[in-house]
Design a protein around this nucleic acid. Structure first.
Length: 461
RNA sequence: GCCGCGUUGGUCAAGGGGUUAAGACGCUUCCCUUUCACGGAAGAGUCACGGGUUCGAUUCCCGUACGUGGUACCA
């Protein structure tokens, strides 16, 4: 069997969604589990939806998550370029090959004509409004036109698309790694556009061509792709041979916690939790959408939480390091049904990870949070001691601010002659005693801390 | 509308023809604690419905309901 190669193929259209990160994670776990390669390919074939900075942002998110691609736009690799816009010419060749072999055709219909066709089908009471075998011979395409008519239109520069020709009254089957055998009736599959009028491929053509060319062996994607899977399978069959096709795995969706539907950015805004991995600033509106990172999540916790959404190891273990995840992961334990996202559980994972990791692994981030609020950290040893003491009561990194601020601000605020000298002269000893005294029992608010400070100062004098 | 996929507590879920149907989050109560968190203990809460198959169905089959996705020159 050839080396496992998987790919994550985002479109640079905005923030990186929870579901996207989980797709990355499952790809990555599968690849690493099998000693394979993880590739990141940028699918920027829709120029109208291109968003400045989105591609860079996606890579930043992966870096934060600690997931490194073996081949990517940034890293390069033997199958470069990894950005589809830079591979444009390639797709056209394959599309034309399909036309030559009778599996696709040129279509010159205007959007209005297609709309009219749909209206007509609707009026006729047809259950389907598709551009398919039922109507294609009435449309303005190379199947209906005489060859010389088509040639003339092409020569005249008339805009066209290339559509796949899906045979009627047939079936397409494949085995999904998660769902098993799935069969589609081709009468329900339409003649999807493969090559757009601007010469760019659609997703359908581009994935198949690139997965083949980049020697991808297993393709993970969201369940929303399941209905178009027959198109991809037909394309594999016509272009590269069904025996060379990737193995498909359609991942369950992540749904909103309340009501119904797929989790979206708006739900996060509405319900007060993040949906993106990191803060995303829309370059057009300037709006910032909060991310898990900035909210105070540890990447370990974020990934751990995502891994348990739609997958489980079959044991009672819930807290996993990346290595443990790689070890335990198996595709047949991935759920078929979608899972509602639960922010409370996500926070629980973060709490677990704050306890599990040594404070120095995330101390810098807390330092940044405190300093942003105007608290200067002078003494790193004392700082770590305080964090160690407080960590068990923190769920988000930002909670450290509320918990710790008094430890760094109080003495200067009180301006107590009895306290200040101690603070300045023997800080560490003083705080060792202090920490000993308050261990496990005290709420760290200004008042209680002040009382104990005074007690200690008095005792020592 | 049409097509696909799915359905174990409020949520994530294990399990699977005969079980007291795991565990976690959340919730309630209690303990710890001068208060809050943390921690500990206990508790409430579930196999969508209707037909089969079977000695027996939450588990298998068929329907229904519900959910969800697709139905774009978006991915």
């Amino acid at each position: 069997m050839s080396k496992v190669r998987v790919r994550f193929a985002p479109s640079p259209t905005g923030g990186l969604h929870l579901g996207g990160v989980r797709t990355v994670l499952f790809n990555y776990l599968f690849a690493k589990k099998h000693g394979g390669d993880f590739i990141v390919r940028v699918e920027d074939t829709d120029q109208s939806r291109f968003v400045e900075g989105a591609e860079e942002y996606i890579f930043d998110c992966l870096t934060w998550c600690g997931i490194e691609a073996d081949e990517s736009v940034l890293k390069g690799g033997p199958y470069a370029p990894y950005r589809q816009s830079e591979r444009k010419n390639l797709y056209k060749e394959y599309a034309e090959k399909l036309v030559t072999e009778g599996h696709a055709y040129y279509a010159f219909d205007t959007p209005e004509e297609i709309e009219a066709m749909r209206e007509k089908r609707k009026a006729e009471g047809s259950g389907s409004l598709q551009y398919d075998a039922g109507v294609r011979l009435n449309m303005n395409n190379s199947l209906r036109l005489l060859p010389e008519e088509t040639a003339a239109l092409l020569a005249a520069g008339k805009p066209y698309v290339i559509r796949i020709k899906v045979e009627a009254n047939s079936t397409v089957s494949f085995t999904d790694m998660i769902r098993g055998e799935i069969t589609f009736d081709t009468n329900n599959v339409d003649d999807k556009v493969l090559l757009k009028a601007d010469g760019m491929p659609t997703y359908h053509l581009a994935v198949v061509v690139d997965d083949y060319l980049m020697k991808i062996t297993h393709a993970f994607r969201g369940e929303e792709w399941l209905p178009s899977a027959p198109i991809h399978i037909l394309l594999w069959k016509h272009l590269f041979g069904i025996e060379n096709m990737v193995e498909w795995a359609h991942l369950p969706l992540i749904l909103k916690p309340d009501g119904n539907g797929k989790l979206s950015k708006r739900d996060g805004d509405r319900l007060g939790f993040p949906v993106y991995a990191m803060d995303w600033k829309d370059p057009k509106t300037g709006d910032i959408t909060k991310g898990f990172k900035e909210l105070g999540f540890l990447p370990e916790a974020f990934l751990n939480m995502l891994a348990m959404l739609g997958w489980n190891p079959g044991t009672e273990q819930e807290v996993f390091t990346m290595d443990e995840l790689i070890e335990a992961f198996s595709i047949d334990r991935v759920h078929k049904g979608g899972a509602k996202f639960d922010f409370e559980k996500a926070k629980w994972f973060n709490h677990q990870w704050i306890q599990k990791l040594p404070v120095k692994s995330y101390g810098l981030r807390i330092k940044a949070i405190l300093e942003e609020k105007g608290i200067k950290i002078g003494d790193d040893i004392y700082f770590e001691k305080v964090l160690e003491l407080l960590k068990e009561r923190c769920t988000l990194l930002s909670d450290f601010y509320e918990q710790a601020s008094y430890f760094f601000t109080a003495p200067t605020q009180w301006d107590e002659a009895a306290v200040k000298p101690k603070w300045n002269e023997a800080k560490n000893d003083f705080f060792t005693a202090f920490i000993e005294k308050i261990k496990g029992t005290t709420e760290f608010n200004a008042q209680t801390i002040e009382i104990i400070f005074k007690e200690l100062a008095t005792e020592k004098n």
